[in-house]
Nucleic acid binder design. Structure first.
Lengths: 199, 199
DNA sequence: CATATCAGACCGACTGGTCGGTTTGCAATG
DNA sequence: CATTGCAAACCGACCAGTCGGTCTGATATG
């Protein structure tokens, strides 16, 4: 492995450990020192790759958290019958989520709730990602309307927005309670909502 | 004003300033020093009234955040037609909330999202408060069923739980976007949901 | 009524430790 | 031999929390 590859490897390691720490403790309470201990790297390495803790946080968001979300949702959002495929995705999440991921909640929402009021850089990135999700979902519902799987009379943007809000709220409730059953109850509500949008 | 009253006054001042700081910065990022500066009191005063920062945080939750929530929701939860009165409450919140309160979100949920994974004391208090809210809402819906204002076939606990999740999610979305219009769109979804529960 | 006593309320300097960030220098590599 | 990549020592600021001491006013006593 050449030097450039090793360097890139160290950068990824920093990003991924930082992501774990931020998910566990929040951004502000995440310690640079802890990240270094866990990676086995030094301050020099970290500040070689990232100019500041804030820049590291932004990079974690863009290069770890967002790709993780996109990967999970993309298939359902391109399905001509989005209601069925999203319902299936939701149902699978109930059992697929680990206890840890229930306890830690949604990385994007966590960061948004913590940082939006106090850092405009985070807020814009997170708000942008959520708007992206909303409009992708809206587009999926609109395509569903054309394909005849979604009721043509609904306001797709309103439905997409409410869905995203309820989804994040559901994950948050289950996170606080540390209770998979509560997640299941909320997802049942979400699926009921989606089914109500059918043609 | 006698000594005991002044002392109690200082305790309240500490609690209220601490509440503001926690709401703005989160619990972990709240600095004891900042609270002291804003109150004009000293370390001695704070640690005379509260044994630790954590104990101060618990007291803020129980004596400031929770009473504020209860006060707002209690009337609607005792109404024989909860769907109408909650809908009215939600509609009034759209205009009644200040820009600042949109930016800062729900104190209880903020604290829950931040502290649940890392402090069991906070988690249990917050989880308890949310369960209380859920079961009060469930009871209100059940009374609505008896009074004939709520569809007798719905699962009241499931509806109450989904409502709470969606409500918190809606506030969170608007907080992140710092956008009152987004709050209005989400609340429209919430009201649609409630109207769907009518007898 | 005057004085002594004492406890609760409070002050602020100080402690050990952690924070994010900087600097310096060295080893490996192209 | 110049550059990249990183290690390690180091910096000042700030953190929560402690502690010795002071002040105030209520109560007990003569």
């Amino acid at each position: 492995m050449n030097v450039a590859a090793i360097s890139e490897d160290n950068r990824r390691k920093l990003l991924e450990v930082a992501a774990e720490e931020i998910l566990e403790n929040g951004f502000q309470a995440t310690s640079i020192g802890d990240i270094l201990t866990k990676t086995g790297l030094s301050k020099g390495a970290l500040y070689h790759h990232f100019p500041s803790k804030l820049a590291l946080g932004y990079a974690v968001f863009e290069e770890v958290f967002i790709p993780g979300c996109v990967e999970r949702w993309e298939p359902s959002l391109n399905d001509p019958d989005p209601i069925s495929s999203i319902s299936a995705l939701l149902r699978s999440e109930i059992t697929a989520m680990t206890d840890e991921s229930i306890r830690l909640g949604c990385p994007v929402n966590n960061l948004g709730q913590e940082m939006s009021p106090i850092d405009e850089g985070f807020r814009q990135r997170i708000s942008g990602a959520i708007n992206h999700w909303r409009s992708d979902l809206q587009a999926a519902l609109a395509r569903g309307q054309e394909a005849g799987t979604v009721n043509s009379e609904i306001n797709t943007m309103q439905a997409a927005t409410f869905f995203v809000a309820s989804m994040e709220g559901s994950i948050g409730l289950a996170k606080n309670a540390q209770d998979r059953e509560l997640l299941a109850v909320c997802i049942e509500g979400l699926i009921n909502f989606l089914e109500g949008l059918r043609a």
